[in-house]
Simulated assay, not measured.
Amino acid sequence: MPRVVSITVVLNTRERRRDLGMLKSIGMTPRQVTVMTVSSMAALGAAGSLLGIPLGILGHHLIVPEMADAVDLALPAYMTDVWQPSALTALAFAGLAITSLGALVPSRRAARLTIAEVLHNE
């Protein structure tokens, strides 16, 4: 999963190279570029968590009972009641951490580019 996040960030920063060059030309520091890129990816991770967790719960409630009924199997409660608030909170924070850590290396690489390198590659 972190590899997918990293690839997404690399593509995102390559698409935004011209914008980053413009921001750096008006005084944005490499640290600010890194923070901006990581925070934008963290927002994407938060949105993914907010959408993915409820959709996962819904899918579990729809699919697992149907699968059990298809084979005439009665599932015990410990196999169906698996969603506790603490686990869901941990999942949300894990998604945020994965996106933030996956964005760190590509964003630092983009922050190290000089303005001339960014504009020359266009």
Rank of each mutant, 00 (worst) to 15 (best):
P2I: 14
V4F: 06
V5N: 02
S6C: 03
I7A: 09
T8L: 07
V10Y: 01
V10H: 01
L11N: 09
L11E: 10
L11W: 02
N12W: 05
T13P: 00
T13R: 01
R14T: 03
R14I: 14
R14A: 13
R14E: 14
E15L: 02
R16D: 10
R17S: 12
R18F: 02
L20M: 15
L20A: 00
L20Y: 00
L20H: 00
L23C: 03
L23Y: 09
L23K: 10
K24F: 12
K24L: 02
S25D: 11
S25G: 07
S25H: 04
G27T: 06
M28C: 03
M28S: 08
T29K: 07
T29P: 01
T29Y: 06
Q32H: 06
Q32N: 11
T34R: 08
V35D: 01
V35A: 04
M36P: 01
T37C: 15
S39E: 09
M41S: 13
M41T: 11
A47C: 08
L50D: 05
L51V: 14
G52C: 02
P54V: 01
P54T: 00
L55F: 15
I57W: 06
I57N: 05
L58R: 09
L58I: 11
G59Y: 02
L62T: 11
I63P: 07
V64M: 14
V64S: 02
P65N: 12
E66I: 08
A68M: 03
A68G: 12
A68W: 09
A68C: 09
D69G: 10
A70P: 07
V71T: 06
V71P: 03
D72R: 08
A74H: 12
A74Q: 13
A77I: 07
A77L: 05
M79G: 08
T80W: 08
D81I: 09
D81W: 02
D81S: 13
D81T: 11
V82C: 06
W83R: 02
W83G: 07
P85K: 10
S86L: 14
S86G: 11
L88I: 07
T89V: 13
T89L: 15
T89M: 08
A90R: 12
A92M: 15
A92Y: 08
A92N: 05
F93V: 13
A94K: 05
G95S: 10
G95V: 02
G95E: 04
I98T: 14
T99L: 09
S100Q: 06
L101H: 04
G102Y: 00
G102Q: 10
A103P: 01
L104P: 04
V105N: 04
V105E: 03
V105T: 03
P106W: 05
P106K: 03
P106A: 03
S107L: 03
R109P: 00
A110E: 09
L113A: 12
I115C: 06
E117A: 07
E117W: 07
V118H: 00
L119D: 11
